[in-house]
Design a protein around this nucleic acid. Structure first.
Lengths: 158, 158
DNA sequence: AAAATAACTTAGCAAAGGCTAACTGTATTG
DNA sequence: CAATACAGTTAGCCTTTGCTAAGTTATTTT
């Protein structure tokens, strides 16, 4: 076996970033897995909130179309969201958010807006900014979110 | 049914961001789903590359520990990576990257480095920057990556 | 070299998140 | 009000990514 050379824990400046200690490394991946579990839920809740606000109601067909997914998939997901107490509805009728759902939607929308605004302030084109924001929003910590906000305020033209 | 009021397509400045047209919206979500399919693969490949570089070899046990996942999970994933022609190995021996694997690892590492550097340049603390970078790196377009690089260059103190 | 330990694999299970196809309700419209 | 169209649900399938438990192979130690 190859000698594990008792790596000194002090940061080594001689080369490109060394590997972080493995427990920390594991935590990073765990954080990502964790984000993945909630992000789809958040996307649904956020979208439902947006649809209610902008169209007056949230119907499965709209959700399916906007998410680019079959209605069956939406049905299943909505069942899950109901189980989690985020969404309420009667069969064959349009959807509502519970109080907890509203909260989640508000948070999500806010994060989304901050990230999107930040990307625009960075000079990213609109289409790209939208796509990247959708992907990034669930992986941005409070700390980074705050930094983005600060940056946007300082660098916004208009 | 509720009258769909023939929404004017011109951007409405009277309120917070309206919903994007649904086909564009669907594309955003599709992009995210797409990223999710490849990101774990990239993480594995990147990690294997890093392990080879920093420890001389990549063993399943190390990967499992660093990813915070069972060895069985790693085994299964490695089988998939072999099937995709990204990894090569003989049973019960340590892992290697194929040429295509190397390329992917290099790309991944580079993206990761750019995002991490950018977050640090933004003033994010080290631990948070690491976590956020891990989550964000797979959702950042070329355009945004370029902007991040530009920003880091300008704002780096050192 | 045998025994013990560590590393790896395989089998089988579960949950998430997709899909299609078939069915059930609701709404529109002749 | 019947027929048709549209919306929503259910059932059943697949893949991915995790797990545990049990079995194999390699390595280290005695």
């Amino acid at each position: 076996m190859i000698e594990t050379p008792d790596e000194s824990p002090s940061p080594c400046l001689c080369e490109a970033d060394a590997l972080p200690p493995s427990d920390q490394h594991a935590q990073q991946y765990a954080a990502v897995r964790n984000a993945h579990e909630t992000e789809l839920l958040e996307d649904y809740v956020e979208l439902i909130g947006d649809l209610i606000e902008h169209q007056g109601e949230a119907r499965s067909a709209d959700i399916a179309q906007r998410m680019g997914v079959s209605q069956a998939t939406v049905s299943k997901m909505v069942a899950r969201l109901k189980g989690l107490g985020l969404v309420a509805s009667k069969p064959y009728r349009s959807l509502f958010l519970t109080e907890r759902g509203e909260e989640m939607a508000a948070m999500s929308r806010q994060r989304h807006a901050i990230v999107l605004r930040f990307l625009r302030a960075l000079g990213i084109s609109d289409d790209t900014a939208r796509i990247d924001a959708e992907g990034m929003e669930h992986h941005v910590s409070e700390e980074t979110l705050a930094a983005m906000q600060r940056f946007s305020q300082q660098h916004e033209s208009s």
